[in-house]
Computed example of a mutant assay.
Amino acid sequence: MSSSPAAPLSYLFVPGHRPERFAKALASGADRVIIDLEDAVPPSDKAAAREAIAAWMSSASEEIRGKVLIRINDASTGWYAEDLRLLRQVRAACVMLPKCESRRQLADVLAPLDAGATALPLVETARGLLAALDLATAPGVARLAFGSLDYMADLDIPADSPALQHAAIQLAIASRAAGLPSPVAGVTPDIDADRVAADMAQARCLGFGAKMCIHPAQLDAVHGALRPGAEELAWAQRVLAAWHAAGGGALQLDGKMVDRPVVLKAERIMALAARTP
């Protein structure tokens, strides 16, 4: 399953207590930047991070605000209430909600925000996975994201466990059933480009269309892994040329039938190629 042409392909985390990195993250080539209040910020710096985000967001343009997500701490922590106040203060356009397990959590976060605000629920637990379709169809949800490292910890499974692939596939199915863009794959702790590219290629095979990154050096590998290959692109071009030449309707190409579903796949390949030059 391909990502929607309009859907971001990469999401780059930047620590909320390091405001000097915000502009650099936005200039990195990432489609979206996630200013983090959760894992990347030590407990002693949570308050300072909120202050830094509030100050920076107060002068950010609407274009920049549209590219920024804020990941808050989850509702079980002592920082959650203050994080919600920050979201209201800065009129956040998009929120990433960790360890999301219910529509109620999403409603609580989005209710005080502007009507157009959206959320990316992070599915990181068994409870979250079982609620995947419910989350995907909740009002204001832009896309599902897979917190794979936390999910492995929750189930106490290794990175090569089939249970991890099972969870990923369930998120892809729930996203498609809800009419959302393909979900966002979890981070790769290794900065190595080959490892990042391999992880993104595997995630793409499971139905994912984007990836979270923890370092700007990972972005090219993510975009490259999502870029259609030369053979794939040539196939899509030939399919569309034959389809248009025939004026629509089923036809044969290379001994295989070409009908509307095949054409849709070719169109998605061409759209993705246009976004990953």
Rank of each mutant, 00 (worst) to 15 (best):
A48G: 15
P42L: 05
L251A: 06
E38P: 00
P162V: 09
G16R: 00
I269Q: 07
S102I: 10
L219E: 02
D36I: 00
D36H: 00
R238E: 10
V263N: 06
D154W: 05
A23V: 07
A201F: 02
A242L: 02
I64T: 15
A197W: 09
G224H: 11
A126P: 03
M57A: 15
A7V: 06
A54K: 08
G147N: 04
E51I: 02
L129H: 03
G78V: 14
V258N: 05
A217G: 12
E267R: 14
D108L: 12
W56K: 06
E51M: 08
G249T: 06
S58T: 11
P183L: 08
R32L: 07
I64A: 12
G207L: 09
V33T: 15
G255N: 07
I169D: 04
A250W: 07
A107Y: 05
V239T: 13
S182L: 05
Y151P: 04
R85K: 14
A172K: 14
A92Y: 04
A119G: 05
A30G: 07
E63L: 08
E20W: 05
D154Y: 09
E267F: 03
A30E: 06
V222F: 02
A242S: 13
R268H: 13
Y11F: 15
L264C: 04
A234H: 01
A245M: 06
A174M: 05
A236F: 04
A6K: 06
D114N: 09
D254E: 15
I70T: 08
R32Y: 01
D259M: 10
R227Y: 03
S175C: 08
P162G: 10
R91F: 00
Y80Q: 00
L84K: 10
A30R: 01
M270H: 02
A234V: 02
G16P: 01
A30K: 02
A163Q: 12
E62H: 07
V184L: 14
G255D: 05
K99C: 04
S10W: 06
A115E: 12
P98H: 01
A48R: 14
G207S: 12
L180K: 15
I35E: 00
P228I: 08
P183A: 12
R176Q: 14
T188C: 15
L272H: 09
V123P: 02
L219N: 01
H166T: 14
D74W: 07
M1D: 11
A136V: 08
W56V: 10
S175V: 09
A172Y: 11
P8Q: 05
V187F: 03
L110A: 11
Q170G: 01
G29Y: 05
Y151A: 06
W79D: 14
L120F: 15
G186F: 11
R143E: 11
T125F: 04
I35K: 01
A52M: 03
G224Y: 13
L253W: 06
A145S: 15
P42D: 07
E82Q: 11
E232C: 10
D156L: 06
L9I: 13
L171H: 12
F13Q: 00
A246F: 03
F22D: 00
A30F: 04
A221G: 09
L164I: 12
E124Y: 08
P42F: 05
